[in-house]
């Protein structure tokens, strides 16, 4: 049984301007100790997926319309508040995309860092602070004894992000959800953080959901990759398969956009057109208006993730028939 199994998750936002289908029926699972990478265009629902699991969707306007998310047998979307509290923040921890809004500017880092420990574990303040210091050092903040008492604004962007990472790892979670945790970090510190995550995985068997736009990071870290577009999963498979045999035209376009593979100074390849308006679902494949391979069939028939190859499902009608 996987550690986490998400089934038909739909999260919509009901706004004055219409209903935004931010997450529109996705299925995925994560095994213990496994690292799942999630990539996809900005606004395709990666963060909303994770927020749904963490019970962080602002309701209203958001609403979880359907689905289940079984974590070790407990449905995160329908469990009691008490069950949820025992899991979220302890057994599942999340690192947020925007460190500044998730840190309280009026509280010293030390207070925020040890809070999850004080809530979830029977531990003295002194012992919690010691664990906090240890974690600060582990994420590469030196002078930790002094800096643990700083306020968030006294840290650089990357240091705040490392504090967030320390906060998430301090309870030794079974599942870490990391929403672009290293985009604010330089590559040497990023490498150090990725090593730390790998080490925690080896030692604790921690599973990781890792959202990033950096395909370089995905290639070094993830076992499997899930590609999302407009609220849906369009392709998923093990990392080598996604990199070396991508099927869905969106995945292929994503790879063509990588700057390091294009000549310097040239105009970089971009995917033509704009992402679809999630409040006005079109018939057919949502990538079709931007897809160079789209036919009339793609514009009328909605593709489902193919079941023909369970290890590498994708939602492209033309790839499924072998035409492209």
């Amino acid at each position: 049984m996987p550690l986490l199994a998400v089934n038909d998750l739909r999260t919509y936002f009901h706004t004055r301007n219409g209903i935004y289908r931010a997450v529109d029926g996705i299925d995925f699972s994560v095994e213990r100790g496994e690292t799942l990478g999630i990539v996809g265009e900005s606004g395709c629902g990666k963060s909303v997926t994770c927020y749904s699991l963490m019970g962080l969707i602002p309701q209203p306007p958001g609403r979880i319309e359907s689905g289940t998310a079984l974590f070790d047998g407990v449905d995160l979307l329908h469990c009691t508040p008490k069950q949820a509290r025992a899991i979220r923040g302890k057994r599942i921890a999340m690192i947020f995309q925007d460190p500044m809004t998730s840190l309280n500017p009026y509280l010293r880092i030390s207070e925020q860092l040890i809070e999850p420990l004080l809530i979830h574990e029977k531990i003295s303040r002194k012992a919690a602070l010691a664990r906090g210091l240890e974690m600060m050092t582990a994420v590469g903040i030196n002078d930790a004894e002094k800096r643990i008492h700083f306020y968030p604004h006294e840290f650089s962007g990357g240091m705040r992000q490392r504090v967030m990472i320390a906060m998430a790892l301090i309870t030794k979670p079974e599942l870490l959800i990391a929403d672009e945790p290293t985009t604010a970090l330089d590559v040497t510190v990023q490498a150090q953080i990725l090593e730390l995550i790998k080490k925690m995985q080896r030692e604790l068997g921690m599973a990781v959901i890792f959202i990033t736009h950096d395909l370089g990071v995905i290639s070094g870290l993830c076992d499997r990759v899930q590609v999302m577009y407009a609220g849906k999963v369009v392709e998923t498979g093990d990392t080598r398969t996604i990199f070396y045999q991508p099927k869905h035209p969106y995945t292929r376009a994503l790879q063509r956009s990588i700057p390091s593979l294009q000549p310097k100074g040239s105009e970089l390849y971009t995917i033509a057109g704009m992402p679809p308006d999630l409040s006005k679902p079109l018939p057919g494949c949502s990538f079709a208006p931007r897809c160079e391979f789209a036919t009339d069939r793609c514009r009328t028939e909605t593709p489902a993730l193919s079941a023909q190859n369970a290890d590498h499902p994708h939602a492209c009608l033309r790839a499924q028939t072998g035409e492209i």
């Binding site: 265009e41 900005s42 604010a184 956009s257 700057p259 970089l268 971009t270 995917i271």
Partner: peptide, 20 residues
């Protein structure tokens, strides 16, 4: 200051083309 860190590769490419 890190104008494209939060963007996906395709949008990032658009912004870089735009800035250039």
């Amino acid at each position: 200051d890190e104008p494209v860190s939060a963007l996906d590769v395709s949008i990032q490419a658009q912004i870089l083309n735009l800035l250039a």
